[in-house]
Design a binder for these strands. Sequence first.
DNA 1: TGCTATTCTGGTATCGGTACCATGATATGC
DNA 2: GCATATCATGGTACCGATACCAGAATAGCA
Lengths: 336, 336
Amino acid sequence: MPTIRDVAKHAGVAPITVSRVINNAEYVSQKTRARVQASIKELGYVPNMLGLSLRFKQTMTLALVITDITNPFWTTVARGVEDVAQSQGYSVILCNTDESEEKQEQYLNMLLRRRIDGILLVPACSSPKAVHMIQRQGIPLVILDRSIPDTEVDLVTADSEAGVYQLIQHLLSLGHMRITMLTGPKTVSTAVARANGYRRALADAGLPESSARIYWGSYTQEGGYQMTRQALQETPRPTALFAANNFVAVGMLQALREEGLRIPDDVAIATIDDIPSSPIIEPFVTTATQPAREMGQQATELLLGRVTGSLTDAIQHIVLPTKLTFRASSGQKAGS
Amino acid sequence: MPTIRDVAKHAGVAPITVSRVINNAEYVSQKTRARVQASIKELGYVPNMLGLSLRFKQTMTLALVITDITNPFWTTVARGVEDVAQSQGYSVILCNTDESEEKQEQYLNMLLRRRIDGILLVPACSSPKAVHMIQRQGIPLVILDRSIPDTEVDLVTADSEAGVYQLIQHLLSLGHMRITMLTGPKTVSTAVARANGYRRALADAGLPESSARIYWGSYTQEGGYQMTRQALQETPRPTALFAANNFVAVGMLQALREEGLRIPDDVAIATIDDIPSSPIIEPFVTTATQPAREMGQQATELLLGRVTGSLTDAIQHIVLPTKLTFRASSGQKAGS
DNA sequence: TGCTATTCTGGTATCGGTACCATGATATGC
DNA sequence: GCATATCATGGTACCGATACCAGAATAGCA
């Protein structure tokens, strides 16, 4: 692969002159410019970014560290990230941690060695260790979706606590008095926030704390299935179930189908984030949807602000509203 | 950010000695090793890969250039790619072309400047221009999913032609004589291959060429909707519709729902690749599914074989079988 | 013609690693 | 005690770009 020196030799000039031609700098005569351009074309020369990256300490690369790209929510976030990055000339390296702290640490170490310009991180756990490691190296960092306690870091989340609050209020207004919450692990901030939204809605409705029924599990289909099985054992049976994420909702629906329970007649349900729905039927489940693409875009814009230095304000916490959609699964007529 | 020279100075040794400690090379005394490791820790030193990349001309980076990560098929492919790459120490840069040749070219130029080690490409068009540009630079390249005519290049595809053939055979065996094919643009090889599978099945069943009804559109929901609207105008109306990809199928279902046509009683349907299906109902649509994750994995293994030089065989064309699933939408009982 | 201003071109150093070779220090064998 | 082998360490150069400064060529003007 030819270098700038090969081109220079071929054109009978100095490397720096070729550089000036490439970058459209002033002070290159028409004759020289044409000769150099001919040489570039003939040799198929492509400038090597690595030299520049080494010299000027910027790689024009960001990293997106998420739990799993096959979750449609993260897919959409990723698309938002890539769009904004691309529009400003940055590339995005994709990393899947599968919620494993070990995998996350491996990835982060690799990213630091690569001297990428900034990191978008969905933390696999609530420990601030990873954040401190990145901050110590002075790499701009934006945390996505989940917060980390007692940590000064830019953050972009959706207000799922409010989403849950409103949906629980909605269920209460439909007369449900026994609403059970199925959420994620206590180490994941969104799982805790959503449980809090649930508790707050009950309290504001004047219900005693003891009326709260919360199951802590994993944010997976299997977790949703297990928690639903347990929740249905309660006597009296809950009249409504709330799934704290879309995978939990899928497991919940599976368990309800196996039990032969009708929705919403036997049990009403609601959830956070849409579940995949077949185009042959009307979407069915009442949800509070997080604006995934917008989260990706805003997080990337914030990160690039830090990277380029155009943004020097204090730490930001951007909270985007969720979008409520009331459908048949909660017992309400669709569209209302 | 400290360099190897900073660490060397701090530990009172030469940079090369620090290098030896980092790489666990022989011939470093215990005492020196301990002192250097202490300095590394104290300074928070992280080696800079850029120096190595520049020197040894490898960046340990691959690129995945697809049309759109929000399509679940590509998402799954991407996951397969990332898994294999990660296991061998490579990172993956993600690029969405949105089927635009211009965007593709921009991305490829950027990737060449980055001196990435290899490219996985889903071509936005059937022109061999992009392939030639990459091959001229000597960058290993594997084409995914779509072939490019008259071009010598490694290729990983699914045998969707055979999948279509079998599904059409299946529809014929159920007595359908008027089957209409809704496919993608003529410039996309899979759209052509799937049309060919359709024609071959008709021919082998002894039907005249004139019995073929093929609509060429775009591989999108909108395309599927438009083509279905047109197809339903035919008299006599088709008794079965075949959608050449999952997005087309979604548009098709939408149009059929609007027309109030029942599946399979009024019209039978089948498609390539699963469409998202709600967990509240049984999966419904008869499909030939492409093994997306495996395609990503095999393509990446092939690519890394070329990158590392461990694979020097002739050009390969890996064709993976599709998986047939007969469900209710074709008029057959589920599971049979 | 001589002087200055402008245009054009190039030499050298640098970014952060490691390969290569050289050299000094210590251990081993007879 | 001396030759040789092994261990331990360091100096220099290089990968491919461009910044910085220097200097040469030309143009403009009195």
